[in-house]
Each structure stands twice: as structure tokens, then as C-alpha cells.
Amino acid sequence: MFRKGKTNGRAYGSGVLRHPKKRYWVVFLLPTAAAFAIGFVWPFLQGIYLSFCSFVTTADAKWIGVGNYVSAFRDRGFVYSFWYTALFAVVALVLINVLAFAVAYVLTQRIKGANLFRTVFFMPNLIGGIVLGYIWSILFDGVLRWYNTSILLETWYGFWGLVILMCWQQIGYMMIIYIAGLQAVPEDMLEAARIDGASGWQTLRRVTIPNLMPSITICTFLTLTNSFKLFDQNLALTGGAPFQFKTLPDGTLSTIKTTEMLALNIYNTFYGQNSAARGTAQAKAVLFFLLVGAISIAQLRATRNKEVQQ
């Protein structure tokens, strides 16, 4: 009599073939988990610890309590950049998603050269933020020069410049997600809508968009968090300029960098001032994490509720 699993060779009897997922998950998971722990979890925990410390390098941190958080909240520039970033995020969120959806919609209508357009629209996404920032600053100034001004001179130029840059960069990426979503809308539903005599708008509103909700969730999540985390483009395009100088009632000068977003503000606090400010910057970074986390969770909840099961 043969015993099952023995006579058919070792490979047949090995656990890999019999229960691949059950037993060997750890082999596949551990490298990533280790990288995540080393590259993210540990620095993150250390970052939280450092926000309660005074330090020059992470090795010489001294515990000082919540003082860093107090100075972070007292910093007018930080509060300003929060509102500036929030406004930017809302505008960029709406514009990028509406335009990306529109482009995706057009490019799924079997028009000539759709593949070429998809590639072209996606390409800006492959260029790094710093390079983009510098290129766009030259482009904007090339135009603004005719009007005797520069992107560095007006807060609103800087704002819209950044919005245009981000749209240009991100629409292609979101477009790809929307195209995938649009192609996954069940053909029978669309056909049923057609037979029932639904107009194009009704089909879009009642069939396509509800089916597209998973794509909308992921795209809004990405645009929202990307906008809040924006750093390279901000640094290269305006670097926070123009600055606004205001003498406060107590005689000190408050310098607001009027196009400085949160991430850049944290960076400038960390390196631009004396070493005592490093703890403050760290505290700002922790607040920044909580903020982005809270906003993204709220947004995910809100859009998830609208997703339909196919």
C-alpha cells in the first residue's frame, strides 16, 4: 500500500504546494514588515519622543515636556500655513478630481489616439517635484514678466501657480485610476439604462458615478493627502515668498511667509532657526501627522459610505 504524499515525490508532499498561503506567509511578509518597522514605525515613535525633547541630533535628546507644543501653537506662521494649506487642499481636491474624471470620461469614449493621450497626460507624473517647481517658476515668470511682476511677488500668484502645477502633475495619475474604474462599470447596467431610455446625464449620474465610488474614494484620498503633504513643489516654486512683515503690538516683527505650506513650515523651523527650534519643528510634525490622519479618515468614511456593492 502506498501512503499518500510519500510515493509521489518530495515536492508534492511539501508544504509549499499543499498549503502555500497558510504556512509560508511569513516568508513573504517579513521583509516588508521589517522594512516598514525600520523605515517607518521606529522613526515615527522616535519622532513622537523627540517632540517632547530639546535636541541637536537625535542622539542627544533631553526631555523637556510639552514646551515644544506650546511654542508650535504660538507660532503665527504655523497657524497661517495651516489655513493656507487647507485652502489649497480644498481647491486642488476639487479641480484635480473634476478634471481627471472629465479627461478619463473623454478618453474612454473610443476616440482616436486615446492611448497616446493617456500616455501624454500621465507623463508629468514621472517628473520629480523639485524639477517641476523650477521649470514652472521659469514658465510663470516668463509670462508674468510682461506684466512687470513675478510669481514671487503676489501671494495669489503663488497660490494659483501651485494649483496649476499640481493639477498638471496629478491629473494624469488620477485619470488612470478613473479610466480603470470607468472600464469596470458593468456593461449590462449601462445597457439596461439605455433600454430604459435614460439620457446621457442620467446614466452618468445614476449608473456610472455610483459604480465609480471606489475610484473616487481613492482619488480624493490621494489628492487630499498629497495636497497636505506637499513640499518639493512648494519649496521650488515659491519657497514661501512673498514674505509679509508686520510689527506686532509688543514691538516684535512677525514674518509670515505667505505661500508657505505646512510641510515647508516644519522644514524651515527645523533648519532655519537656532537648535532650540528643532523640538518645536518636531512637535509641529506630530501635530501635522494627527491632522492629516484625522482628515483622511474622515474623508474615507464619508466617501466609503457612498460606495455600492456590485
Binding site: 514671487l152 519657497g239 514674505f243 524651515n268
Partner: peptide
């Protein structure tokens, strides 16, 4: 705070 002071001066000169 030399970097911060100079950055503000640069912005003003611009």
C-alpha cells in the same frame, strides 16, 4: 538665525 534673516531680506529685495 542667519538663514531666516537672509531669506526675509532676499524676499524684500525681490
Amino acid at each position: 538665525n542667519v538663514e531666516a534673516w537672509r531669506a526675509a531680506l532676499t524676499s524684500a529685495l525681490t
